[in-house]
């Protein structure tokens, strides 16, 4: 059984870690909001430039259209140092043969620059969301550690 002082020191580190992770999570969420807003505005701009009917939901594929692969997928992996589950974004290059299509081409061949930029923004948002999920995971592990350490600490006392 570890000594009380060691448990306390561990608890200290984890508590500070937890606060730090909370801060990171807040920062991440704010960034998500910022990027998403920017993307929305760019999309609205694209609709304004190109016309409401040329950039609309009617361009999106329906149930009847052909199947295609997702360009971005999420992979799970375990962090070696802590053993915690981690999410990662996997990107696939566009290739017609493998079924990876470029979604921007649904809106025409010559799309406005704003649409491309909006897409980049949403892409970044997606990365941030995954980052946020990872932070949440870490936070959860951290709290789990704190709680189990507390249990040990009070058992010692």
């Amino acid at each position: 059984m570890p000594k009380n002082a060691e448990v306390c020191r561990l608890l200290d580190i984890l508590t500070l870690d937890m606060l730090d992770l909370i801060q990171q999570q807040v920062q991440c969420k704010v960034d998500i909001e910022k990027h998403k807003n920017e993307g929305d505005i760019l999309l609205a701009k694209a609709r304004y430039i190109q016309g409401v009917s040329s950039v609309s939901s009617s361009q999106l594929p329906t149930e009847n259209s052909g199947d295609f692969q997702a360009l971005t997928t999420i992979a799970h992996s375990a962090d070696e140092s802590t053993g915690a589950e981690k999410f990662q974004i996997e990107k696939h290059p566009v290739s017609k043969e493998a079924g990876y299509v470029n979604p921007v081409h649904w809106f025409g061949v010559l799309v406005p620059r704003c649409l491309q930029m909006a897409r980049d923004m949403f892409d970044k948002t997606l990365q941030l969301v995954v980052e946020s999920a990872n932070i949440q995971n870490e936070l959860r592990n951290c709290i789990c550690g704190i709680l189990s350490l507390k249990k040990v600490k009070y058992d010692i006392e």
Partner: peptide
């Protein structure tokens, strides 16, 4: 930020390995 040392990490792992988060919480 303070980083857990290898030994501390081991200790933490051994303590929290069998714990269920929801039950603890």
């Amino acid at each position: 930020k303070k980083v857990l040392s290898e030994k501390q990490r081991e200790t933490l792992k051994s303590i929290s390995s069998g714990e269920d988060f929801n039950k603890l919480f």
